[in-house]
């Protein structure tokens, strides 16, 4: 049994930290799949790529450590050999990008959320140092959960260099069905659907698990209406909304246009963009202080607005 050194990361990260340096305005680009989501980078910002490659994969531990620039496609291929996957969505992007954006997969109910998958992160701080947060095991309460703060932070408080992620077994069977049954009823009747999508009329259901369980779940649903097997779910409109799940049953199409809603989750893909409500005052104070603490010079991804700082 060798001795693990927690404090000496991958030498590749040292080079990356050097590249980030301590002074100029800087941002990481992945595959730019969500590039304009949180505002436009200030001009003059240096844009670099994070290193890529899988550092360590131990299927029996259900853990993988991967450099931020690795594409999710590559990661998924590597994990699929051992019939595993993570909860990160593959929309053509990178691991670091998926974490920085923090958007969940379409199959959020089945795969889990991005924030729950992140066990440890190494990021480059605004001073150009490598910072480690979280831990390399599935369960850990050692110190503050800085890594949670990084999920969805769009590179504004640290530049993600490496992530240790929890993996999960790929269920042995899966199936998409289409039906006209009320989506709320579908959600109430199913035990652990992987996704339930609804466009206001049609409901698509993704089921995963042991084949007999899927058959049983379909039988349960079959009592309320007919089901048609389909190859995949519906096409998704471009704008992403985030709503309390109960609000999905009474969407106003004049606000939202055509939509596909993820029942039980609260994500909605719609023609029109979501209007943001006023921020919570207390939260605003903390977010401003955090930005001040982690990036006082505003050099990390300047121009992006995640928290409510200006």
């Amino acid at each position: 049994m060798g001795v693990v050194d927690h404090k000496n990361p991958d030498p590749v990260l040292n080079d990356f930290a050097y590249e980030v340096g301590p002074t100029q305005p800087i941002a990481i680009a992945g595959n730019r799949t969500c590039w304009e989501l949180s505002g436009t980078l200030n001009s003059g910002t240096t844009v670099i790529s994070a290193p890529s490659g899988i550092v360590d994969y131990r299927p029996e531990e259900m853990i993988v450590t991967v450099r931020a620039g690795t594409t999710i496609k590559d990661l998924d291929e590597c994990l699929a050999v051992h019939k595993q996957r993570t909860s990160l969505p593959d929309r053509g992007g990178t691991v670091g990008g998926a974490i920085a954006v923090g958007h969940n997969d379409l199959q959020r109910l089945g795969k889990g959320s991005v924030r729950d998958a992140v066990l440890r992160l190494r990021y480059i701080s605004s001073e150009g140092q490598i910072i480690t947060c979280g831990g390399p095991v599935v369960k850990n309460v050692t110190g503050f959960n800085l890594h949670k703060l990084m999920v969805g932070s769009f590179g504004t408080i640290g530049l993600i260099a490496e992530a240790t992620l929890r993996t999960n077994p790929i269920p042995p069977a899966q199936s998409w069905v289409k039906t006209m049954i009320d989506p709320k009823l579908v959600f109430d009747k199913l035990l652990r659907p992987s996704a339930i999508l609804w466009d206001g009329q049609t409901t698509w259901v993704h089921l995963e698990g042991h084949l007999p369980d899927i058959t049983a779940q379909k039988k349960t649903l079959g009592k309320f209406g007919t089901l048609d097997e389909v190859a995949h779910g519906p096409e998704l409109p471009a704008n992403r909304w985030s709503l309390p799940p109960a609000d999905l049953y009474q969407l106003d199409t004049s606000d939202i246009g055509n939509f596909v809603a993820s029942i039980g989750v609260g994500t909605v893909w719609a023609d029109l963009p979501q209007k943001k409500g006023p921020p919570d005052k207390g939260k605003l104070i903390i977010e401003n202080r955090l930005k001040q603490q982690f990036d006082p010079e505003n050099r990390l991804s300047p121009g992006r607005k995640v928290g409510n700082w200006s």
Partner: peptide, 23 residues
Amino acid sequence: EMAVIGGLEPEPEGLDLRGAFIG
């Protein structure tokens, strides 16, 4: 000061203060 962090939405706006607060 009072703050409400996190939310019923799947991807609440802003930084994940709830994740940082827990633990």
